[in-house]
Amino acid sequence: MRTTSSLLGTLAFAAGVFLSIFDRRTYNSASRTVFIHQFYFTSVQILPLFLSVAAVFGSLINGMAFQVIKNLGLTDYLGRLLMGFVVTELAPFVTVLLLALRSSAAINAEIAVMKVNRELDTLEHFRIDLLHYLFVPRILSGMLSMIFLTSVFALVVLSVGLIVSGLIFGTGVDAYFDTLLNAADIFDIIVLLIKCATFGFFITMIPIGFGLRATRELTSIPVSVLNGMVTVFLAIIIIEVLSSIIRFI
């Protein structure tokens, strides 16, 4: 019963946030500042770590996968492996995990602290809408960060793949791009972008929602973060399953 009501509450909050995205009042100088700062902390500040992870992960995955498909004589499936698995599945998954670990936790804690410190009351007193000023810019930033970082991850892994496939299969640049292009599907790319945006929406919206559930007690902050992060993890799994259903059924 409690779980259902919590789920309904989260969905209602999500609907409110989603509608606010299309509200003109959301877009003002203050919200823009919040968006820029949030985007900076979520995407730009993490970039060196993210690029390193993408390069290391890309080399490992490509090396192992290419060796396996070579041994099995499935070299025709190189393009499908890269586009169908690495780009559309692995890239968003690794990205969302990194962002959830870093930014979702931070957002959850930040909102909970603001609630405990009554800073949210300050905003309300000055008639600053929490959705417009505090939530939507963060959520938009999360959505955009997911799309951008997934694209960066995919580009890095595909670039590493070019080197690895050259070493293992002796594939040239043209042949490699042709292989990728043959396997690329616009529908898959669109699903990927929508999936990334959905990931971004929920991994920022859920921590905000759980941050708001904190009480005036300091001890409510860790509880709020804990519950928020577990729910974020469940949301990631659900979105992953749903996107797979859309793509393959």
Partner: peptide, 8 residues
């Protein structure tokens, strides 16, 4: 004090 500054 009920309307504090935003700490971040």
């Amino acid at each position: 004090p009920e309307v504090p500054l935003i700490s971040n």
